[in-house]
């Protein structure tokens, strides 16, 4: 039992951090009215980016905490830029958000494979011993603190500051908000920036902390888990923080049950089945609180209609 707990707690905690960052990031994009179908592709891309950045920084500086730290930061910045491009494109033009989301997903998968392989080539060329994020023992506590901080700060920003008011307002009715002289593009650009940073952080920690290496296709579907957590938590940070515990637990524990005779295919697909089940439960739950309702304009094309 003690053995199990010694293994379980850090594993659970690292999974929790990854999925919570990702889910909170997804929440901000969708609260601003942008359907986040890009999430899985950009999660895969960011997890590959983190690996390659880590290799490059390890070669340029030296393997260690600084290189790891820098690679996390750079991944977060790169993903933030990609996400703000995503939200901006979806706002500037009345495109189908679904199609744009899927195309970002595909490109994310493809670029992720190329980027990761670039890192792997340098890795075998220089034989760097990449000491992955050194937080497993000493620094982990900072990541945990960061999770708590992110949940609290995002909640505060969304519901107490003007920035959050703008994000929620453009998610409700961008046309109406635009008519009062507010830049819808800017509000959505900013929410894309923040979301991308968090999703990038999730992807980076996934590679550098949870997996500790890279192989092609890594991270596939883990973005969707973050998405499912965001929906199951009613796109509301405090609830996401709670829901994420259960998802992470399921994700961590199921493979463990393999030794108890559970087929590997069941344990790999169970999180997806659980995600679907969670979405069903959420959608049939009657929501009394206005705060928990879906953003009114989620996924709708935005344009100014000129009519007589």
């Amino acid at each position: 039992m003690k053995e199990l707990l010694e293994w379980l707690i850090p594993t659970l905690a690292s999974a929790y951090a990854v999925y919570t960052f990702t889910a909170i990031g997804s929440t901000i994009v969708e609260r601003s009215g942008i359907l986040n179908l890009a999430i899985d592709g950009l999660f895969v891309l960011s997890s590959s980016l983190a690996y390659t950045y880590a290799i490059y920084f390890s070669i340029a500086l030296q393997p260690g905490t600084l290189a790891t730290f820098l690679s996390v930061v750079f991944t977060a910045i790169t993903t933030a830029l990609l996400y703000s491009a995503y939200t901006t494109l979806n706002t500037v033009l009345p495109v189908s958000q679904g199609a744009v989301g899927l195309s970002f997903m595909f490109v994310g998968y493809g670029l992720g494979a190329i980027v990761g392989n670039l890192g792997r080539v340098s890795f075998s060329l220089y034989r760097v011993r990449v000491e992955y994020i050194g937080v497993a023992q000493s620094g982990a506590i900072f990541v945990y603190l960061l999770v708590v901080l992110v949940v609290a700060v995002v909640h505060l920003v969304l519901y107490k500051l003007k920035l959050g008011v703008l994000v929620r307002a453009v998610g409700e009715d961008p046309r109406l908000v635009g008519q009062t002289g507010i830049s819808v593009v800017r509000a959505r650009f900013l929410s894309g920036l923040v979301s991308g940073m968090l999703i990038g952080l999730g992807g980076a920690l996934f590679t550098l902390w949870r997996v500790g290496g890279w192989s092609q296709g890594q991270g596939l579907n883990h973005g969707w888990l973050g998405y499912a957590i965001s929906i199951a938590g009613w796109r509301y940070p405090p609830l996401i923080a709670i829901v994420s515990v259960f998802f992470s637990l399921a994700y961590v524990l199921l493979p463990y049950l393999q030794s108890a005779g559970l087929p590997v295919e069941v344990s790999t697909s169970a999180p997806y089945a659980i995600s679907i089940a969670a979405m069903v439960v959420v959608s049939i739950t009657h929501r009394k609180s206005v705060t928990l309702l879906d953003p009114k304009s989620l996924g709708r094309a935005f344009f100014i209609e000129e009519q007589a």
Binding site: E172, Q179, I182
Partner: peptide, 15 residues
């Protein structure tokens, strides 16, 4: 031009 689900203060601050 007000967002129904936001409060009065939020609608004012927004602009």
């Amino acid at each position: 031009n007000l967002i129904e689900r936001l409060t009065v203060v939020e609608n004012v601050l927004m602009v």
